[in-house]
């Protein structure tokens, strides 16, 4: 479990994290989403015990990071931004070093080492110098380091940043597999990641928490939520006719590809009506879709509002 309580961090006159109160339970993958410079990394650094909060505090598994730093750090696996590691060491030396600093005994190291190495597919590079590895492999070494002691809480700062699509997929599958009994906090600025991984999202901008909801709830805030969009090329569909339907609020046509989006009135379902109209008009519809809502639009709406304020 991760809890933050009015967590605040100032650099001089700049407030990087502003009274952030969050809570993530076991089984949850909480995504910290925000534009660059929103304070995601600063918040994570405070939870990890690297930076001292200006005020407020955070707890990891109930251990206060300010008063019980050792217990809190023991319960935490942390991948810092950019997955730093000692370049001159081999993967084996690095992981052994981390295990020793964490106070793992020889037989525990022996048992966990193979599990973690297999899970991250590092067998072939165990004796390679870390500095010679590709970015994706180095990220995997960083992840191995974070899960080596089998922590109940995992905190990963931009775990897939800079990886190619295949590597991203592999890292996400790994996080997914570990999510069941653990509390996982990841930070990201990628919206696709939220869809792929998180069952809860906290949007922060300028250090402030602006939204804390499930991805579906966030999508529901989009004006596209429940809208129907379709392509009917060359049919010259009548916007007016669609607009006259009782539950339709407005109709937009994309000037580029002619795709029509029909927006419902608050809380109405319009799929049925629109389809019926299209049938009666005998329009050749190539594709029709019920929109779930667009996270990028919600994200922009929430975070740009904060900037203006």
């Amino acid at each position: 479990m991760i809890e933050t309580d009015q967590l605040t961090r100032c650099y001089g006159s700049l407030t990087a994290v502003d009274a952030l109160t969050l809570r993530a339970e076991p089984g949850q993958v909480l995504g910290l989403l925000g534009p660059n410079g929103a304070g995601k990394s600063t918040a994570m650094r405070m939870i990890a015990g690297f930076l001292t909060p200006t005020s407020g505090t955070a707890r990891v598994c109930g251990f206060d990071v300010r008063t019980q730093p050792r217990e809190a750090r023991k319960a935490l696996g942390y991948l810092p931004e950019g997955a730093p590691s000692y370049g001159e060491m081999t993967v084996r030396e690095f992981l052994t070093f981390v295990a020793r600093v964490r106070g793992m005994t020889a037989d525990v190291i022996f048992r966990r080492f193979d599990v973690v190495v297999a899970r991250l597919q590092l067998e072939e590079v165990l004796d390679a110098t870390i500095a010679t590895l590709s970015k994706g492999l180095r990220r995997r070494v960083g992840l191995a380091q974070a899960i080596l002691h089998d922590p109940p809480v995992l905190m990963l700062d931009e775990p897939t940043d800079g990886l190619d699509p295949n590597q991203k997929h592999a890292v996400r599958a790994l996080i997914d597999a570990m999510a069941r009994e653990r509390t996982i906090l990841i930070s990201t600025h990628l919206l696709e990641e939220v869809h792929a991984l998180c069952n809860r999202v906290a949007i922060i901008a300028n250090g402030r928490l602006l939204a804390d909801a499930t991805p579906a709830e966030l999508e529901a805030r989009s004006r596209y939520h429940g809208a129907v969009s379709f392509s009917a090329p060359g049919s010259g569909v009548s916007q007016e006719m669609l607009g006259r339907l009782p539950d339709v609020a407005s109709v937009e046509v994309d000037p580029l590809d002619g795709r029509v989006t029909v927006f419902p009135r608050e809380g109405k379902a319009i799929m049925e009506e629109v389809q019926q109209l299209l049938r009666t008009q005998n329009l050749a519809v190539t594709e029709i879709q019920l929109e779930r809502g667009r996270l990028d639009e919600v994200f922009r709406q929430i975070t740009s509002g904060a900037r203006a304020a």
Partner: peptide, 14 residues
């Protein structure tokens, strides 16, 4: 410089 200080000082040692 390399950022490993963040790794080292977030492990359970003072």
């Amino acid at each position: 410089r390399s950022g490993t200080i963040e790794l080292l000082l977030t492990m359970p040692l003072s």
